[in-house]
Design a protein around this nucleic acid. Sequence first.
DNA 1: ACCTGAACACCGTTCAAGT
DNA 2: ACCTGAACACCGTTCAAGT
Lengths: 226, 226
Amino acid sequence: MANERPVTRRPGRPRAERPVLTRPAILEAALALVDEEGMEALSMRRLAARLRVDAMSIYHHLPNKAAIVSGLVEAVFATMPPTPAEGPWPDRVRAWARDYRDLALAHPHLVLQIVTDSAAASEATILISEPLYAALEDAGLTAPQIVVAAGTLVDFVNGYALALSPPAADAGAPEADPMGQRLAALGPDQVPAIRRVQAGLGGQSPSGADYFDACLDIIIRGVTPP
Amino acid sequence: MANERPVTRRPGRPRAERPVLTRPAILEAALALVDEEGMEALSMRRLAARLRVDAMSIYHHLPNKAAIVSGLVEAVFATMPPTPAEGPWPDRVRAWARDYRDLALAHPHLVLQIVTDSAAASEATILISEPLYAALEDAGLTAPQIVVAAGTLVDFVNGYALALSPPAADAGAPEADPMGQRLAALGPDQVPAIRRVQAGLGGQSPSGADYFDACLDIIIRGVTPP
DNA sequence: ACCTGAACACCGTTCAAGT
DNA sequence: ACCTGAACACCGTTCAAGT
């Protein structure tokens, strides 16, 4: 079951009108493969097997593996929903940040590439930033202030998404643990402030969407000049 | 010159008192290799060649490659300088964020692992966070507010460092371009707000340390409850 | 033009063999 | 205990060959 061998197919150009392989079909299969089995499962051979095709056939449509990954990132960025240009600017900034977070987390195994492969996606990055810039203009900021505010927000969401991305299945690394358990191993006097804060939480820390929104509030509050 | 072959060495336990291979020596060599040639140059065989040793010898000291990477991240976190617990809390938060940024950027090819491999480093992550928590306590925040503020800051610095990390030499991805050049290719009406901001900058955008400090100012300002 | 399959130069890791 | 070297199961990619 592990080795889904491609059916043997006679070499040569296929007779059918519809070509066997196309760039979109390859990217679609690659995205499904990554979503299901993670980034380390994306190899030319396994992708080809999924497409029931010889591994080398892919090179006729995409120059190399890096181009496949770039194509995936590009495709994901294209799914960013349009942010409406109405309403108070803080609401629009918040909506934009949530949309961008959702985009990044829609394909957990791809988060690293989305956040990292900025060269591949930088055109897309600029395109999706437009509503954010528009909202920050409405906040009455100067040009340099807008650049800084937008950068703060993007860097934060990138960092946030990255922290939630699944670990790369490193066998050598210890398992991810909730912070509480690690804390217990640390000795009571090494991290007194952290222990006090943990105690102050009473066992329940802000999590998920609440946490993200609270972080956003900090940045949005800080954006407004005093 | 590319293939620095290991000298042939008789198998068996070395006679010398000092063992040929130790965990620290392996990690030191691995860090040098990564710093000089990047993450993709870190292979068991190349690391072994640098240590003038058979590739498999390494497995007697570290269980696998993931453990080497985790060890590197751990070693880097250990270099975090102590933040003084004196002075106004905003200064201490700023100093902490700069130190953490410097730590992350000290080994550019390792940024991705530092920011990503949080499971491996989470004990170290907690340890270095202590002064940040202490400073935020002094700001008079409640426990949940401290958790949110610290998280915002850490996620931001992670995202910031990641954006500055060298691309993984993806041959298929287009070259990284300054934003201005990409903008030109985008058509004047697609991103009007971004174009207006670019024009407002007059060609000089805040960069480097100034940019980072300006971002920090936003977050620190937003942390203080109104 | 498009698909195939052998081949090359790498990987990480297991395992039996040396001392 | 520690180091070696062959071997296994993978990689990405090149290239000559098919139609």
